[in-house]
Simulated scan of single mutants.
Amino acid sequence: MQRKKLFALYAVLSSLVFTNASGSIPAHAAQINQAVAVSSVSNDVTTAKEEVTLTKATIKKYSKKYTYKNKNKKVVMEAVYNRPVLKGNFDSLKKINKFYEKQEKEWLRSFENYLDDAKEFSEEGDFPIYNDNVSYEVTYNQKGYLSIVTSGYFYTGGAHGTPYTDAHTFDLNTGKELKLTDIMKGSDKTIKNKIYKAFEKKIKANKEAYFSDALKTVKETAGKKSNFYLKKGKICFYYDVYALAPYAAGMVEASIPFTSKDTFKIAF
């Protein structure tokens, strides 16, 4: 009998804590329940976010113009710099964005090294404005990997300017920049030989268009620099103007298809 009374008292006290006179749940109890519910939802969202695998990046173009004048307010140097900005609240994407922010700062320091010369020549008469135009192209953006080729054209007078290229490939889920050894199978020597054979085929097909030591240059430098990018169906290797051929030939490229047997670690 005593035990039944205790259980009855416990039931009444419990109802007083969570129910007021009108039979509704008091505000403080509702807040407790709400907090528990929010906590539960938040945990679910966090778990879902951690499981997200990025397959493709959303990219917005950032553009900035730089203008420099001499003491007479005459423009002596100018440039337009374009770079990619990856959208999304992921650490890996933020890491890639920081990489390109750093690239812009390094380019700017290099560009401004010419400012004194530009000012000096501008005082000698009708001298062309030094300028650079930096743009980029997304050549591969799928299956969790991103390749971007940045190109510039730096002009300081004369018949033509100097074009240049800089390419980088990233894992979208880690933000890591990939090296050739991350992409291709085999030792450094094996990878180098495959690149050499790709250029050898191209150069031998039209020897007159290249410098006589073009293949020697490839043999000595293939695989040592970050001179590659991904494109639909293949990996492309490149050399800038004057490296293997005269200016008119432009950038020289060779490629290896993704279907090449026993070549790639990643299924692009």
Rank of each mutant, 00 (worst) to 15 (best):
T259M: 02
F228I: 02
A214I: 04
S226C: 01
K224L: 13
K65P: 00
F268A: 04
A118P: 07
D182N: 10
Y239G: 13
T169N: 05
M1S: 13
N227V: 00
V12F: 10
N206F: 00
V241R: 02
A37G: 07
S110C: 03
P84N: 07
S15F: 08
I235N: 06
P128F: 01
S110H: 07
T181V: 05
D171S: 14
G250K: 12
K224A: 03
M251Y: 03
Y239R: 08
Y239E: 05
L9S: 15
Y100W: 13
K5E: 11
G175P: 09
V149T: 05
V149Q: 02
L146H: 05
I256D: 04
M184W: 02
F90Q: 11
Q31F: 13
A214L: 10
Y242N: 15
N43C: 03
F268E: 04
I266K: 05
E220Y: 09
R109G: 14
S122T: 08
D262R: 13
K73S: 13
Y247S: 07
N33Y: 13
N141Y: 07
V76I: 12
D166Q: 08
I32E: 03
D116E: 11
K232V: 10
G152N: 07
H28L: 09
F237H: 00
G175F: 04
N193D: 13
F170P: 00
K143R: 12
P128Y: 01
E120I: 08
V218D: 01
Q103G: 13
P246R: 00
I256E: 03
G152V: 02
T217Y: 03
S187I: 03
Q31G: 11
N89L: 09
H28D: 15
A214C: 06
A198L: 00
V218H: 02
Y238D: 12
Q34M: 07
F264I: 05
Y145A: 04
G250E: 09
D44Y: 14
Y196T: 02
Y239M: 07
Y164S: 10
